[in-house]
Simulated assay, not measured.
Amino acid sequence: MDNDREQRCKQANELIQLIASTGWKFFNYEGNGGFIGYFEIKKGRTYFIDGYTKKAIYAYTNKFFHYKFTQGGTMQALILDIAEFIRTGEATNAKNGYGGIYCDHWGYPAEAMSKIQKKAKEIGFTDSLEKDLDRHDYIVE
């Protein structure tokens, strides 16, 4: 298996852990008999394991999320973006819409979002808000 891809998967899971440990605690179902969702690579494909349904979702297109994913559309787009980052190593924040980690619809405190954005930049998921704005004209400052 590609060691770089495994490393990006590990980093992506660190980002998910951060998202799950603050604010609304998206992806965290530990209090409901589940666990924090996470990425894994099986047979060269990137999957997201939903912490509530406990089902593996092939994180490639929207069609694989039906009845398996317990978060909303913003987080689904984020998962698709992160999965593409794992596969390619490219900065893919907001490629699937909703502004990604710069979206103001999460409802997270500003301090938490700042930590999430810093971690995303640290691992290479985003280059910066400015570059994401240039790539994706629907992100609003």
Rank of each mutant, 00 (worst) to 15 (best):
residue 47 Y to H: 11
residue 40 E to N: 10
residue 28 N to C: 05
residue 29 Y to A: 05
residue 51 G to W: 00
residue 44 G to W: 03
residue 40 E to I: 08
residue 55 K to I: 06
residue 34 G to L: 07
residue 38 Y to G: 06
residue 42 K to F: 13
residue 33 G to A: 06
residue 24 W to C: 05
residue 32 N to T: 12
residue 23 G to N: 01
residue 32 N to A: 12
residue 28 N to Y: 00
residue 43 K to P: 00
residue 39 F to W: 09
residue 50 D to K: 03
residue 47 Y to T: 12
residue 22 T to L: 01
residue 20 A to Q: 04
residue 53 T to V: 07
residue 34 G to P: 11
residue 21 S to D: 14
residue 25 K to N: 03
residue 55 K to C: 13
residue 45 R to L: 14
residue 21 S to Y: 01
residue 41 I to Q: 12
residue 28 N to Q: 01
residue 55 K to N: 12
residue 50 D to Y: 07
residue 30 E to H: 00
residue 35 F to R: 07
residue 48 F to L: 11
residue 28 N to F: 00
residue 37 G to R: 01
residue 52 Y to P: 00
residue 36 I to A: 06
residue 40 E to D: 12
residue 29 Y to P: 04
residue 46 T to K: 13
residue 50 D to L: 01
residue 40 E to V: 07
residue 30 E to Q: 11
residue 49 I to G: 00
residue 43 K to Y: 14
residue 38 Y to P: 03
residue 43 K to T: 14
residue 47 Y to L: 13
residue 54 K to Y: 07
residue 42 K to M: 13
residue 46 T to C: 14
residue 46 T to W: 02
residue 33 G to C: 10
residue 23 G to E: 03
residue 37 G to I: 03
residue 53 T to S: 15
residue 38 Y to L: 07
residue 51 G to M: 02
residue 44 G to Q: 14
residue 34 G to M: 02
residue 47 Y to Q: 10
